[in-house]
Amino acid sequence: MYKSKISPLYIGFVVGGAVLCGCFSYILLTSPWYITDETDKAIGTIIFWLLTGGFIAFTSVSIFVLITMRSFVLTNKALIIKQPILLQKRRIELVDIEAIEERKLSINSSHDFRDFNVYRGKQTYIKRSNEKDIKITSFETRNYHSFIAHVQNERRRFKWCLDDDKLCKLDRSWSGYGWMAFLLLMACALLYSLLNR
């Protein structure tokens, strides 16, 4: 049996996004708004609610993602998908898996027509007949390389001897942690200023 671990990077981005956008939503809803005489009142109100609604929607999506986080357990016969917060499990037999496809994963942000790489990693699609693909990413899974190697090894007729030390070195990627620290710092600073006002 082999278990995946939820990535602290993933949790950090989700929590930081929820707190930051939740704080912006609170600021927008509790601060007085003034519409200048040159601006039509209806247009000003629409812009206000679009902006506020966007922050509320992003906060809601972040909370939903946090609640539906997944972890995986691999046995010699099945892949078990767990959602720990919802207390749900789903079992997929290894014989039902048709293919495993690995691709590059890149999460980018842009500013002033320039792209910044936030995270670079891998993603795997587990394909089954007449079923939706299961996606496992190195962004959400802390021991991604080790876990995927064990999944592929369990599907083989003749098992390979896996080098766990090399796999652990691949799992120790620091990609994205600087951006996460920046996001959490901004979220904490904004939350601190709101609590002290």
Rank of each mutant, 00 (worst) to 15 (best):
Y2T: 13
K3L: 09
K3G: 01
S7P: 05
L9R: 07
V15C: 11
V19T: 14
V19H: 11
C21E: 11
C23K: 06
C23Q: 08
F24P: 04
Y26W: 15
L29Q: 10
T30C: 06
S31C: 03
P32D: 12
G44R: 01
I46D: 07
W49M: 10
L51D: 00
T52P: 01
G54Y: 08
G54I: 03
I56A: 13
A57Q: 02
A57L: 14
A57G: 05
A57C: 09
F58V: 10
S60K: 01
S60T: 14
S62D: 07
V65S: 02
V65E: 05
L66F: 15
L66G: 07
L66R: 00
I67K: 01
I67N: 00
R70I: 00
R70W: 01
F72H: 06
F72Y: 15
N76F: 00
I80D: 02
I80S: 01
I80F: 05
P84Q: 08
V95Y: 03
V95G: 09
D96A: 14
I97Q: 01
E98G: 06
E98V: 13
A99M: 06
E101N: 11
I107L: 15
N117Q: 11
Y119D: 01
R120A: 09
R128K: 00
E131C: 05
E131M: 10
K132Y: 07
D133Y: 03
S138I: 01
S138N: 02
F139G: 01
R142P: 00
R142K: 14
R142V: 00
Y144V: 06
Y144S: 08
H145L: 03
H145Y: 15
H145D: 13
A149G: 02
V151D: 09
E154C: 07
R156E: 13
R156N: 11
K159Q: 14
W160K: 15
L162V: 03
D164P: 00
D165C: 02
D165E: 15
L167S: 12
C168M: 14
K169S: 09
D171G: 08
S173N: 14
G176E: 02
G176S: 06
L183P: 13
L185A: 12
L190K: 04
S193G: 01
L194H: 04
N196G: 04
N196Y: 10
